[in-house]
Amino acid sequence: MKNMIAIFRKQCKDTLRNKTVLIQFLLFPAITILMAHTVKIPGMPEDFFVNLFATMYIGMAPLTSIAAIISEEKEKNTLRVLVMSNVKPCEYLIGVGGYVWLVCMAGSLVICMAGHYGWKTGLVFMGIMAVGILISLLVGAVIGIGSRTQMMATSITVPVMMVFSFLPMLSLFNGTVGKIARFLYSEQISRMLSQIDSFELTAERISVIGINIFIAALVFMATFRKCDLS
């Protein structure tokens, strides 16, 4: 626990000076507020921008930031020193992952506030975001652990992030894309967010998200065993 808290505190200080990661956390909440308050198109769903950017936030921020943080630590040998200092891999991953999850939840809260939801709907919104961020964290951690350098992590992160964050948006305009995207957790989350006032957990949503979590956890464990942290 002590090590996890130390890593969490270190990450707080480090991220404030890491513009690349910081921008990931701040970009979408800021754009959501801006767009929700400035763009009003007749016939457009009330929470269009909130749903759109919340889904993109899930697909981008946790995934890219945790992949960047882990791969940087691997590249610069800081992770090796930590492991040698008897920090267990799970302590490190929980410390860093917990930090990214919390910051992304804070960003989600800002997006939620831009939606002007009531407290019950707001809680549902935050719950959906929490699950989505968790899955993206697993995917990002897989990329971070599997990459030797930050450059390598970025080259893998970009296409993966595009799939998870852009397919739900594209499926709004193209039915065929929608048929494929429905197998992604981000698409299911996008659908839940767009129907948040009449929120219900259908069998399809539970099974797609459950299978996505299972696959992400499986790939995470396989990558962790193969590549290790140091």
Binding site: K10, N18, V81
Partner: peptide, 20 residues
């Protein structure tokens, strides 16, 4: 390779490891 956190200060690096 030093294994130091480049964005953190000299003190912050040692403080982190003091906690560890």
């Amino acid at each position: 390779n030093y294994g130091l956190y480049e964005r953190l200060s000299v003190y912050e690096n040692l403080a982190f490891y003091a906690d560890i």
